[in-house]
Amino acid sequence: MIRITHLEKVYRTDEVETVALNKLTIEVKEGEFVAIMGPSGCGKSTLLNILGLLDDPDSGSFMFNGIEVAKFNERKRADLRKRNIGFVFQSFNLIDELTVFENVELPLIYTGVKAAERKKRVEAVLDKMQIMHRRNHYPQQLSGGQQQRVAVARAVVNNPKLILADEPTGNLDSSNGNEVMQLLTDLNEQGTTIIMVTHSEHDARYSHRIIRMLDGQTVLENIMV
């Protein structure tokens, strides 16, 4: 599903040049659950942003479903992104001014789904995440675990082929964290590809494969059994 080869990304300020990704090559197959680990500054987040089509690489190739997307412009990237990729963030990134329902509805609005259809799909996904009873609450009225469930609901409401999770349990206690990991595992079992950045060895064990990074390169791959 994803094949990146010799991917490079360099951040430049006036004085410093930081190599975030150094000729990185990775492949992720459809239906896989991959964890990416490594110390701070190793390039995990940069990789995730590029995989999420939020950022573009300086050089190298990025094939997504057999299409070269490395040179896509902003509009094309946005279009591809909103149809295929869901995001789960460490700090949930819910919009405080919108209710749970409205937050989850947002991606459907941007993909142009009709109102009646939206209602049906949002309700279905909220039901699945067991937060239907909170549909009219605002994010700040929810616990961290509930917020992350809303974020996961938002990520999957569009039925994306790929979910990118950036330390999804980082702001949660262990029981809420396990719950979220279970959700992701369930989604993966239903066929969604998941790439997750994490610091937690415990969380990484939910995945099929761990890619360890250092200084913008993969240093090790563990296949989980």
């Binding site: 992104r81 909103k82 990134n93």
Partner: peptide, 10 residues
């Protein structure tokens, strides 16, 4: 930022 990640256009 969130809206853009979710696919909002400029």
């Amino acid at each position: 930022g969130i809206r853009k990640v979710l696919g909002a256009s400029v």
